[in-house]
Structures are given as C-alpha cells and as structure tokens.
Design a protein around this nucleic acid. Structure first.
Lengths: 221, 221
DNA sequence: CTTTTTCTACTGGTTTCTTGGTATTTTTAA
DNA sequence: TTAAAAATACCAAGAAACCAGTAGAAAAAG
C-alpha cells in the first residue's frame, strides 16, 4: 500500500510523489495500475475521502494530487481550494466524469493545474502528471475541445448566485411554490418572486424546468 | 488485451469468463487489476460502449458481464435487458456509483443477478462473481442496507413511463412549453397536457420543478 | 381475437409562474 | 465612508401550468 508517513527523501532519485483521492476503490486501483509501471512516478498515498487526504497532507508532502470532483464527504472543488491555499507547492489535477465547462472553470479558479476525464489512457495520464510537475498545465484532449468552444459562447457561463438565491433555488427544486417558500423564509412572496426572476435572468432561462435542469448540471443544487 | 474472437474451450480448466463494460478506462483498468490475480476468473473482453459489448456477445460467449449503468451510448439498463433476453446463460452484475433503490430495482427487473457499487474491494468483487456464477444472486453490503429500507417505504417506487411519456418529459426538461411540445410532436396541446398530468401522477409530484429533479435522480431523462 | 394499455382529445376552472417596472433598506466591498 | 451589490417589497397583467372528469381510437398484450 505504501501510505506510510515515514517517507525517506530521495529514496530513488526524486520520483514524482503522487497522491490519489477518489471515493471509488475501482478508480483508485485503476489509477494505480496505470501508474505503477512508470519509473518516474510513485503513488505514495490514496484516499477515498477529502478529509483523510487533507489530514495526510498536514504531516506529509506530495508533488501531485489526483483529485476526484465527486467525493462523498466534501466537494472535490473545496478540497482543491484548501490544498491550493495551504500548500502552494502541491499541484492538483482534477479528475471527473463531467466534461462541463463550468465545472472545469471552477476547478481552475480554485487552483487546479490540470483536468482529466475518467476515460483517460495511461499515456495521457502520465503526460498530465509530468507536465504539471514541471510547472505546467495539462488539460485532456476532450477537455480542450470543450474549452475551445468557449470562444463561441459566453466566457463566464456559470452565473454566481447569491446566498439567498441558492437557498431559494433549492426550495424551488424541492417543488415548493412561491408562497410556501415565502412562509418558510419569513419573507414576502413578492420578494421570492423577485429572487426567482433574478435567478432565471442569471441562468438565462424562462421556466422552472430549464432552471432545475441547468442548476443540477452546474451542480448548484 | 485478450479480446480475441478465437476462444479455445477449456484453455485452463473452465475459468469464469468475465466481460467488463464501462465507459471509463480507469474503472476498466481497476476491475482488471482487481481480478487479474484470481486464478478462477478470466477477463476475456472489456468495452467502453454497450454497442461494442453486444456486438462481441453475438460472436463470443462469456459467463459474467460486469456492466456499468452509465454508459455514454446507451443506458446500461437497456443493455442489461438485451443481454437477459438474448443470452439466458449469461449473468449480468450491475455496477454503478448510485446506491439508489429505484435504479437497483430497475436492474433486477431487467435480469441483473447482482449489483455492486464502484467502491467495492477485491474480496467482495470476486465473491460477487463466483456467487453469481454458481447460479446465485449477489448484492453488495451497502446495497443490502438500502434494499432493507424497502420494507418501510413503497415497494415499487419507480413509475414506469410509456414511450410517449418519456418523450414528453424530455421535452419538458428542455424547457419547452406545452404548446411547443404539441407543435413538435404534431399532437394537440390538450393531449400534451394529459400526458403531463399522467406523468406527474405517476411520479407523485405536483409541479415541474419536482418532476425534473426526480426524473434526473431516477435517470429517466 | 378479445382485453388492456396507451395515445389521443375535449370542457372548464384554479393556481402558479412569468414578465416588466419601481423602490427602499441592508449588507458588502472598495 | 461612499459606492456597489444584495435583499427586501410592491403593483399589475398575461402566460403557462395544474386539476378533475370524460372518452374514443389505436396499439400492445394475453
């Protein structure tokens, strides 16, 4: 397993120390098996929760973190942010099944240096790790395609909802009516209506159906 | 790779022939690495699409199919159904990240003999394969917990939508109005209304917001 | 070839949502 | 501390969704 805390420096000749965080054992194993043959890379630890991963980092150090977006305990995006804030020399490569511009953007703004889809092959994975290790950025081919379309669409496509707006959209998604929401939040139905309108304007939709669908896609709910 | 068509019978002594279908290379690799050490199991083929998998089965035979629910080309549930219909001697074990009763139910009703979450460990995976191979059923521990709750809730919680209803709910999710849907499907708006009402009755909701949310959760869209 | 399900369509009425404009207070950021 | 953003609230009107009941034609299942 080699997740020991007692790391001797330069055990070979400065291998790239990689930590993997993914709540699916299968993916963990998959990544390991893709990396194990490579001489330059050393998988020093792997965890299924963000909490464990952050705990490990407080006592050990790694070069690269392969980080799944969808963790069971916290959002991978938050973990990414924490790592970026606390450990400036650790580079995070995002990993997910979603080829969604807004999610990728969120990862990048939270300090991720790379982003890969879970259908990467060995070559691309290793290329990503080595490139990012050498102070570069790496985005998978499919990601690049997605990002390329950015030119033809709105550059910042993820509307930033305010606290109240997030609260209200959550209630809407639960099937509550404007009046019910107003009652629960102790505000006027007219205020809820206004929020509703503002949310829809931000998300660029004209009815709840689209609203909910997009909100789920962009992981706002 | 060993995905060759030319399978020689009894190449060892009747190993369990396993096919893996999952659109994530990582998971594919993960499963392989978990199984490769086992003497009784032979991973004879692996595919990333349902179409390829079904094509393979038309010329070759396997004992067990490890089948991901979320395929890019088709629904794993549909693939499961097809395999169950065409090849009665092939057993399917469902695989997914969702520990959702309705989805598990759907798999079972479509002929799956087992169901595992993607955070299985090697032991459980192998136990599942061997158990199912010996004409049994196997459901992961966490799955069993979920299913146990069935007693305390509605037994059949997944409404079966008709073709037309699925079509209409898809249009609704795209934010189209009743009139727009009617136009596109060349039917009366009143008919669309009726379908809409029937869908909501089946799903036990009273507005689109809940409808879309639940439909996405139950993977009906 | 029946029976059942699905798809179709209608009447009529109620509720909720959506749009457009306006405006004060509170909170946050520069 | 001042400017900007967010949260609050209102009026009015039209659009769309939702509810209840009915029912014939078409397709699928037995």
């Amino acid at each position: 397993m080699r997740t020991s805390k007692y790391q001797f420096k330069d055990e070979k000749q400065s291998k790239i120390k990689v930590m993997i965080v993914d709540d699916h054992t299968l993916v963990l194993e998959g990544l390991r098996s893709l990396l194990v043959t490579n001489q330059d890379i050393d998988v020093v630890a792997s965890f299924t929760t963000g909490e464990e991963a952050l705990a490990f980092l407080s006592s050990s150090t790694v070069d690269i973190v392969l980080l799944d977006i969808n963790l069971s305990d916290t959002s991978g995006i938050d973990v990414c942010h924490t790592i970026f804030q606390k450990y400036h020399n650790i580079k995070v490569i995002g990993l997910s099944t979603y080829n969604d511009r807004s999610i990728i953007n969120q990862m990048i703004t939270n300090g991720a240096k790379g982003y890969l889809l879970k259908n990467v092959n060995s070559d691309e994975l290793i290329k990503a790790i080595t490139t990012v290790y050498q102070n570069g950025n790496y985005y998978g081919i499919e990601i690049q395609k997605t990002m390329a379309n950015t030119i033809f669409s709105t550059l910042d496509d993820t509307p930033r909802l305010t606290k109240r707006e997030k609260q209200i959209i959550t209630h809407i998604a639960e099937g509550k009516t404007t009046n019910q929401i107003a009652e629960e939040l102790f505000i006027s139905p007219l205020t809820v209506e206004t929020h509703r309108r503002n949310i829809m304007k931000k998300m660029n939709v004209s009815n709840v159906a689209s609203l909910i669908k997009i909100a789920i896609e962009k992981m706002l709910i």
